[in-house]
Design a protein around this nucleic acid. Structure first.
Length: 877
RNA sequence: GGGCGCAUAGCUCAGUUGGUUCAGAGCACUUGGUUUACACCCAAGGGGUCGGGGGUUCGAAUCCCUCUGCGCCCACCA
């Protein structure tokens, strides 16, 4: 068949993707085959493809395509996440642009805007994954806010509440003043910042004395309700039981004692602000202190801030520092480095804030999940080092704040029938809630209209932790056909940044709701960084446009580029050069096929012996590679697997095999060899297919006319079979001989086209198997076996064999002598070190036999080679 | 403050229980080569006292100690 001389990726890629879709090859239904399942880490529904997604999903696609070729029932479930805080922020921003304030909208109105946004942008990222070649079962696409998915989430909430694991608590939580919601501890990132430590004087009531405290947050003095000293600190013993006066607001507060205070830090005196610091809250509880919240929900000051009311906390910090200085309360300032919590999503500085929130008790739930990873290995993490991180977090797990003051998400199914804090019921829906409320209150007249649902929504992760179960409807129908077949899933591919957010919690939910691990293996990818090791991000502008990259280098090229250097857990230093290499590899394969495709077949020619040997040798190499691949895949070493294939195709197949069997220009090839090469080509395509699905599918269809039911994507991975392994070392020696010939040609400027004569003294008693191939690749008249050195020839040696290439005209005797002398010197030095070792009694006595034997062999080889060299030298002189 | 990990060629990294897979790969680099699949190519080649120091051993990139320099995670010292 005529094929284009240039490979046009963009056309080919969309053609085959459509073809696969049309034939439903990505779709899976339970059957008698072994399942292989991956659930996608659902990207943000309104997100766009970035380099991290590309890496992640390429890995998943490689795994799923390989499983498919191995005959498993491969199912990759795609979907998106509603990403409450991120999406809500985007919607709020968009509304703001239109002059609409979120707070002027009803819940339903806002949600309508959010859904419109979701429908407009939602799933763009899934379309982009198709460009990458991802073979997801699109019929199974899920969204965490789909009706049945939300129903599962609510059902789980109700269940955990009924089990007594969910409670409502008035606690210090992480408040994001920008998103105006609480966050879980995991969503807070602690960053080191240079701040200032302010030393402030507080007057002691009824005296002229003052007490100095150190604080990083002078604006919180309005919330001060005590000063605390250490009872063991006798510097302050005279202040016991006295009262202090807060500057500016002049509130009189008690001086309390608690050994929580560090005598060494600052002045040894601490101002206590129970509403705005967790430690202070604990002190407040212990000492029955008043709690004064001085902030509005956007972290501006409220009426307690007096003349600062309405101003932002950081503006106030500056201004109040000035006021304190003017009024003489500020003693001094020092620079001070401390860690401040910031919001993972909005980057806003977190404000500790007391409020009513919903919490999930984690300690008991976590136990089976700890055991699964650390004892039973039902879940394996790759790389293994993450197991210690996992252990550390799980052992110190804290209760999970699952409520958010957002609208975009599953609304908490707690229904209040009265104003009291405990006057609520938790139920799947309003009808059940009404029933429960009537029973609880004994008031059968209660109406649905009397019930008020909690306005908060659930943390996004409270829906995604169910993902591997809920995508198969295993929460609502725990025994259904899909969940029974596909669960537990096999592999999860994700980043270590969400190990706690998501992975650990999925394991917890898996044991709680299916009694089994959600997946057996977790492949943790690294971050994608640029050449300067900077994280790729929009802000830095160092992240290439994913789709442009695909346009430029083809999806296959980008996939290969990403996988060329991405060991599990290691960051990926991305360089477009890698994509170029990937594209180049595709081009190489394409051209190799053009070569084979161009051969004319002559059925009347018998197969030359050299071709038979060449093919047998490649088959041995191929089988060896198959075993290596198996090993690499079993350890999730995908870049090593890819490199194994890369070298097999580039070096062994293209550079060696095709050169060995290539007919002379214009001459036909025998049918037997041709058929073997076609079979080999097909096997090659199969093992590359997971990495380069488009190109391989394309060539595979050029090779033969295929029936409409056939496609490479659903063909069979090559089988392992017995081969003549000894051909591999034999050829290694032969290739050294070929290199020797090429070296001499290069040194003496003998063009390759010139046929040369060639002789060997076979001291090693090397087999003649590859002689015809050596002759072909070296363009030799023949390989002559001789017993005497050839006069006037250039020489080289492999092991103790000596090879001769006679040339016309005089050879440079001096140069030859120098070459031989150098080689002799080196070999003698080598021999000496080996003999030293062998004469060391302790070595001979202690080292294992095979090590001693190998040293003895080295000695013998070196002696033989020295003999050869000496003979040659003698004949030259 | 606690924990985990890393340091091998110019770059990115392999190197399993110490010894013929032990100093390796890919890229980059140097040299030579294009009427004959591919210059997105072929061939040949240079390049590392395995972060420093010490120890264990017949033998250390590999095990132990120590120093240095990075990275990550966790944690309520104002």
């Amino acid at each position: 068949m005529q094929i284009p001389s240039k490979y046009d990726a963009s056309q080919v890629e969309s053609k085959w993707y459509n073809y696969w879709m049309k034939h439903n090859y990505f779709h899976s239904e339970p059957d008698e085959r072994e399942p292989y399942t991956i659930v996608i880490p659902p990207p943000n529904v309104t997100g766009v493809l970035h380099m991290g997604h590309m890496l992640n999903n390429t890995i998943q696609d490689v795994l799923i395509r390989r499983a498919r070729l191995l005959g498993k029932n491969a199912c990759w479930v795609p979907g998106t996440d509603h990403a409450s805080i991120a999406t809500e922020a985007k919607v709020v921003a968009k509304l703001k642009e239109q002059g609409i304030n979120k707070h002027d909208l009803t819940r339903d109105e806002f949600l309508k805007h959010a859904w419109d946004w979701t429908h407009e942008y939602g799933g763009v990222i899934l379309q982009q994954l198709k460009k990458l070649g991802c073979s997801c079962d699109w019929d199974r696409t899920k969204f965490t806010m789909d009706e049945n998915m939300s129903e599962s989430v609510i059902q789980v909430f109700v269940d955990l509440y009924n089990k007594g694991l969910i409670y409502r608590g008035y606690r210090m939580v992480n408040w994001d003043p920008e998103a105006k919601t609480t966050l879980s501890d995991e969503e807070v990132i602690h960053e080191e910042q240079q701040g200032t430590l302010y030393y402030l004087n507080y007057k002691i009531e009824g005296s002229n004395e003052t007490i100095t405290i150190a604080t990083t947050r002078p604006e919180t003095i309005f919330g001060d309700t005590a000063i605390c000293i250490n009872p063991n600190d006798n510097r302050f013993s005279r202040l016991r039981g006295k009262k202090a006066i807060v500057p500016i607001c002049n509130r009189v507060i008690p001086i309390i004692e608690d050994d929580y205070v560090d005598i060494e830090f600052g002045t040894g005196c601490l101002k206590v602000t129970p509403a705005h610091d967790e430690n202070d809250k604990n002190l407040g509880d212990k000492h029955n202190l008043q709690v004064i919240d001085i902030f509005n929900e956007d972290a501006s000051l409220n009426s307690f801030g007096l003349h600062y009311q309405g101003k932002d906390r950081f503006v106030v910090r500056q201004e109040i520092a000035n006021e304190l200085k003017e009024k003489g309360f500020l003693v001094k300032t020092e620079t001070h480095i401390n860690k401040v919590g910031t919001s993972e999503r909005t980057k806003a500085i977190i404000e500790p804030r007391l409020s009513d929130q919903w919490f999930l008790k984690m300690e008991e739930l976590a136990k089976p999940a700890i055991k699964a990873v650390l004892e039973d290995a039902n879940v394996k993490l790759f790389p293994k080092k993450f197991e210690s991180t996992y252990r550390h977090w799980m052992d110190n797990i804290r209760d999970w704040n699952i409520s958010r003051q957002l609208l975009w998400g599953q609304q908490i199914p707690a229904y209040y029938y009265a104003d009291g804090k405990e006057d609520f019921v938790v139920a799947q829906n309003i009808d059940e809630a009404l029933e429960k409320a009537r029973i609880k209150t004994g008031n059968s007249k209660l109406q649905a209209a009397n019930l008020k649902q909690d306005p908060d929504t659930l943390d996004t992760w409270f829906s995604s932790w169910l993902w591997p179960i809920s995508v198969f409807d295993g929460i609502r129908n725990p025994e259904n056909k899909d969940i029974s077949y596909y669960y537990p899933t096999n592999d999860l591919v994700t980043g270590p940044d969400i190990l706690f957010f998501w992975v650990a919690r999925m394991i917890i939910a898996g044991y709680e709701y299916q009694g089994k691990q959600p997946f057996s293996n977790v492949y943790l990818t690294g971050l994608v960084r640029d050449k300067q090791r900077q994280k790729m991000s929009k802000q830095l502008g160092n992240s290439p446009d994913a789709l442009k990259l695909i346009e430029q280098y083809s999806a296959d090229g980008v996939r290969v580029g990403l996988l060329l250097s991405s060991a599990a857990g290691n960051d990926l230093m991305f360089d477009e050069l890698l994509c170029q290499q990937g594209k180049g590899f595709g081009n190489k394969i394409w051209n190799a096929y053009r070569l084979v495709n161009g051969w004319e077949i002559d059925a009347s020619i018998t197969q030359p012996e050299s071709n038979e040997i060449a093919i047998a040798w490649y088959q041995a190499k191929f089988q060896k590679a198959l075993i290596e691949l198996e090993d690499h895949f079993s350890k999730y070493r995908l870049s090593d697997a890819l490199m194994t294939i890369y070298k097999l195709i580039f070096d062994d197949f293209c550079s060696w095999l095709l050169e060995m069997i290539k007919p002379e220009f214009g001459k036909p090839i025998d049918k037997h060899t041709y058929n073997s090469i076609i079979d080999i080509f097909e096997d090659n395509l199969k093992i590359i297919h997971p990495f380069m699905p488009f190109l391989t599918e394309d060539i595979w269809h050029y090779i033969k006319d295929r029936s409409p039911q056939e496609a490479l994507i659903i063909s069979k991975w090559p089988e392992t079979k017995p081969v003549n392994q000894s051909l591999i070392p034999e050829f290694e020696l032969a290739s050294e001989v070929i290199s020797g010939i090429r070296n001499i040609r290069k040194q003496k400027h003998i063009p390759f086209k010139e046929t040369i004569s060639f002789s060997v003294i076979n001291n090693e008693n090397t087999s003649h198997t590859f002689d015809s191939i050596i002759a072909k690749l070296g363009n030799l008249e023949s390989v002559n076996y001789v017993s005497e050195a050839i006069e006037g020839a250039l020489t080289f040696r492999v092991k103790s064999n000596e090879y001769f290439i006679p040339i016309q005209g005089a050879i440079d005797v001096e140069a030859e002598i120098k070459k031989l002398t150098d080689e002799l010197q080196y070999t003698q030095g080598f021999l000496k070190s080996v003999q030293n070792k062998l004469s060391n009694e302790r070595f001979v006595n202690n080292a294992p036999e095979e090590v001693v034997a190998s040293e003895k062999k080295k000695e013998a080889d070196a002696l033989a080679k020295i003999e050869t060299l000496k003979t040659s030298l003698a004949s030259l002189k």
